[in-house]
Design a protein around this nucleic acid. Structure first.
Length: 577
RNA sequence: CGGAGUGUAGCUCAGUCCGGUAGAGCACCGCCUUCGGGAGGCGGGGGUCGGAGGUUCGAAUCCUCUCACUCCGACCA
């Protein structure tokens, strides 16, 4: 390819409405342009990258034995009503009617369509297991699209759905997909982690997310140094090192005046105690029942620990999404404002985190204005109804498997695999006959990859001040040829053209920067670097006088000279490796 | 959906407070010079100042409404 016949849509300056680096560089390198919020046109160079990612995903999915299909983007409401998600989904599902006033939606995911297909096609256990996938544009009307294609409304996704006669078969395919995903992200050249994940509303028992590590990621992922444990912070478990073992002798408790000190920090300063000696009591909304007429619940943690909302939402009776009780509600029910609350003599359910379960002689609110309880103890002064893990793990906690300490890093979720169970097959009556001629609901799994998001994630992980540094597997071109003074030097032109032809014959993708003499060398260098092309050859009279070409690897500091007649061997060795 | 902000040339922005001929740099077109790190000179094209309404002799500028976009939060199989 020649730049003179290609859309090199590079921008010198950063567009004002791009905040994260991948979004800025995708615009500046001329990969995408915005049509509307969360919707992007892929320009030629960007589409080349997207296609390379797609090709790797497709190859590995095919290798795993999955079958590629293509389902409609537009889906009729009936199926969604049948699964119950038409009402459950909310405005994220973009709905509209056709000319006959029949309701439709743009597919945000395809569980309904695939389940409908398979319940009609499959009759026997002998047809199982089976795994189907597609690579297709999805549409989700996100409340707040952001960061370019990282969180877009229209995005390219690989989604796969597997069908099984039982849980054991599902687990086999699940493992296969786990391995397939690991292969895909390895081939893409990304630094990633597979982590245990929350199954969220989709249900099911087991789920893993695949995260590309990058500081701009939207998720916190937790893992130990040996790699034997990794989880999304939403459900990560960890062991506190300095946990109180509850062996100390109980001291006499007493009320103390703490004035206007309300926060843990203020109390620590006032009492000259570490936060680990304090107890934090949070009041959240709960369902109103006979046993809990106030509709509130107390969540108790050690003073230095933070609440994990996702974990807390799993406690029976808590209102989802979790919300804190207002000051007025707390005062009405507990007779005290927040700031002096404690788990003593509360007539609402009290859930204590394991971090506070065994504490001795702690400080907690006395449920009385400006008053805290010193040297309080469970049983004698305070009570709890239930112990649960509701704590957000911290860096430095011990790994739950006993292997070292936990690290926390930011991650971009690029893949997610689920064991669905029978959620959809039950709702949509998708069954086959087993070997005894009995009708059995199929067990399902589903497996997603954010293909367009991978492009952004790769940039987040691979860039410098000059622009993108593509992993070689997904670069739009492998080699850039930059001729200098081609308009004056027939020899430079000839060598450049010849090299391009040779490389293309060898199946290597080349971009020859043959823009006219008005495009200065500096502009060409800057553009090729901005676009992140991994290998660059400069052809100049100066070099040719010594029979040399200049080679520079995008990641390297320095360029090096290579004899003209060994350039093909030189390049094919580097590109292969 | 709550909070904040921004809309002026393809891009980055000035001009708005204090109403009076629509600006700069880059990009683009032509000619000349230059040619290994975003060159220089001369000449040129390009805008209903997001939209609608209002105030005024006169509105990019003041007022009202509206639309779009961005950020923070909430939300997110």
């Amino acid at each position: 390819m020649r730049t003179s016949q290609y859309l090199i849509a590079t921008l010198r300056e950063t567009p004002a409405d791009a905040e994260v680096i991948s979004h800025q560089l995708m615009l500046r390198a001329g990969l995408i342009r915005k049509l509307a919020s969360g919707m992007y046109t892929w320009l030629p160079a960007g589409l080349r990258v997207l296609h390379k990612v797609t090709a790797i995903v497709r190859e590995e999915m095919n290798r795993s034995g999955a079958m590629e299909i293509s389902m409609p983007v537009v889906q009729s409401a009936e199926l969604w009503q049948e699964s119950g998600r038409w009402d459950k989904m909310g405005p994220e599902l973009l709905r509209f009617v056709d000319r006959h006033d029949r309701p439709f939606c743009l597919g945000p995911t395809h569980e309904e369509v695939i389940t409908d297909l398979i319940r009609n096609e499959f009759n026997s256990y002998k047809q199982l297991p089976a795994n189907f996938y597609q690579i297709q544009m999805k549409f989700r009307d996100e409340r707040r699209p952001r960061f370019g294609v990282m969180r877009a409304r229209e995005f390219l996704m690989k989604d796969a759905y597997s069908f099984h006669i039982n849980q054991a078969s599902l687990e086999q395919t699940y493992q296969l997909m786990y391995q397939t995903y690991s292969n895909i992200f390895t081939r893409l050249g990304l630094n990633f982690r597979a982590v245990l994940a929350d199954t969220g509303n989709i249900g099911g028992s087991t789920s893993h997310e695949f995260h590309v590590l990058a500081d701009s990621g939207e998720d916190d992922i937790v893992f130990n140094s040996t790699g034997s444990y990794a989880a999304n912070i939403e459900l990560a478990d960890g062991v506190i090192k300095d946990l109180d073992d509850g062996s100390a002798a109980m001291l006499e408790s007493r009320e103390i005046n703490t004035g206007n000190a309300h926060s843990i920090e203020e109390l620590c300063a006032l009492l000259d105690l570490p936060a680990t000696r304090l107890i934090k009591t949070l009041i959240v909304k709960a369902e109103v029942t006979d046993t809990n007429p106030h509709g509130l619940m107390a969540l108790v943690l050690r003073g230095d620990q933070a609440l994990n909302d996702i974990k807390a939402e799993k406690i029976a009776g808590i209102v989802c999404p979790i919300s804190f009780a207002s000051d007025a509600e707390i005062e009405t029910v507990l007779g005290c404002k927040p700031g002096c609350l404690g788990p003593n003599k509360l007539d609402i359910p009290v859930v204590v985190d394991r971090s506070a379960e065994n504490m001795r002689n702690f400080v907690c609110g006395a449920n009385k204005a400006e008053t805290h309880l010193m040297d309080a103890n469970w049983g004698r002064d305070c009570h709890f109804d239930q112990v649960a893990d509701i704590r957000k793990v911290k860096e430095g906690d011990l790994s739950p498997d006993g292997q070292g300490e936990l690290l926390i890093k930011r991650g971009i979720e690029v893949g997610h695999i689920f064991q669905l169970g029978t959620k959809y097959s039950e709702a949509m009556k998708a069954a086959v006959l087993d070997e005894n001629g009995r009708s059995v609901l199929m067990t399902m799994g589903c497996y997603g990859i954010g293909v367009s998001r991978i492009v952004a994630a790769a940039i987040e992980q691979n860039h410098d001040t000059n622009g993108i540094i593509w992993p070689e597997a997904i670069a739009p071109f492998q080699v850039a040829i930059v001729p200098l003074n081609a308009h004056k030097s027939p020899r430079v032109t000839e060598v450049s053209e010849h090299l391009m032809a040779e490389l293309e014959k060898a199946g290597i993708e080349v971009l020859l920067d043959d823009r006219d003499k008005k495009t200065s060398p500096g502009v060409k260098f800057a553009d090729m670097e901005l676009m992140g092309i991994p290998h660059r050859i400069v052809v100049s009279d100066r070099g040719l006088e010594n029979n040399e070409l200049e080679y520079k690897f995008r990641r390297a500091e320095q360029a090096e000279n290579v004899p003209v007649d060994s350039i093909m061997a030189f390049l094919s060795a580097r590109i292969a490796s």
